[in-house]
Amino acid sequence: MMRGILIKYCERKHAESFQKEGVVHFERLKTFIEQESKNGEHIIADVLEGAVYRNPGPGKTTVTITDPTGKRFVLPAQDVQYNFTDSAIENWGVCSFTFLDFEKDFDIIERDNVHATLRVKPSICKELQALSLGSTHVPIIIGAGAFEKRLFKYFHERQEAVRWGPVRYYSLDEEENISSEDYQEDPGKIIFYKSDGYAYEREYRVGLVRPINKKGKNISLGSLTDCVKILDNPGILKNMRVELSDSKQR
């Protein structure tokens, strides 16, 4: 059970279609790779999306060059980083959210035996400002538990495979982001790995376990007005209060 809230940043028109019709848009992992490599987009794009990353470290990698005659030259040990992406997985569809945990990401303002009033930590509000893309995107507040149930009901009824979970952030100084054994056992889990330059996003993502076309894919969960609230502007987040009640003690 997710104890927290989800946040989705998008343009106002898309926020309204998400709230009223439950329209969830998926993009290919490859799209995010291309946005950074071609356009230099760093906020929502990542050239290492879905990539197996290797950084053997100084003295652990040799470079061998073979010339046209077949003669081989071994160069001194290098500090080499490299990555590779499965051509099938990079066409999987993903949809991303920010997850804020009630215990880790909120300050307690008031508390008694039955109620607690929380506020998003100021440092987190500041970090999330980047996702508003200069205030062109508004935040949508989503009840995590209710949305999760609706999402899985949709895919269960259609017998479609879907993956859902938190992103694991890794440092580029690490020797690897996933071991060869773990990757061979389950290559699909690589969609939940990102470099820690994006850790401020606190991302939860939904992954479609199949390729989609380059235009992306929409699904509709039906009205989400019971668990979704659109904020008028990104700045409201820092003043938002969340009240939790223990129903057993009422």
Rank of each mutant, 00 (worst) to 15 (best):
N55H: 07
S223Q: 00
A45L: 04
V162H: 05
E203D: 02
Y204F: 15
D186K: 13
I141C: 14
D186L: 10
C95L: 05
S132T: 00
G145E: 15
M2A: 11
V52I: 14
I178L: 15
V138L: 07
N113Q: 13
F147G: 06
Y198C: 02
D86R: 01
G4F: 11
F18R: 03
F102C: 03
E27G: 10
I109F: 08
N55F: 09
V167N: 05
G70W: 05
K248V: 10
Y53S: 02
H137E: 04
S123V: 14
H137Y: 11
Q81L: 04
S17P: 09
I109C: 06
A15Q: 03
N213P: 01
L29N: 06
D105C: 02
E174V: 07
G57W: 04
E157L: 15
F97E: 00
N39Y: 15
Y9A: 05
E181H: 10
I65F: 13
L224W: 00
I7P: 02
E181I: 11
V80R: 03
K229T: 04
A51E: 01
L133W: 08
F106W: 09
F155A: 07
G50A: 11
D173W: 12
I219G: 05
F152D: 03
C227S: 04
L6R: 05
K126C: 07
A161K: 13
R210T: 02
P56T: 00
R163V: 11
K126W: 09
V52N: 13
V80M: 08
T69P: 03
D232F: 08
G57T: 01
S195M: 01
V138C: 09
G188S: 10
L75I: 14
R150M: 13
R163C: 08
E157F: 14
S179V: 06
E11V: 11
T62S: 10
I33Q: 02
Q129E: 14
I44R: 09
E49M: 00
L75P: 01
S132G: 02
I178D: 03
I109L: 12
K8G: 07
G22N: 07
R158V: 13
N218L: 01
S17M: 10
L244M: 04
S132Q: 00
H115C: 13
F147H: 05
R163K: 09
S247G: 09
V209R: 13
V228T: 12
I178K: 03
L128K: 00
K104E: 03
R205I: 03
E160S: 15
Y154H: 15
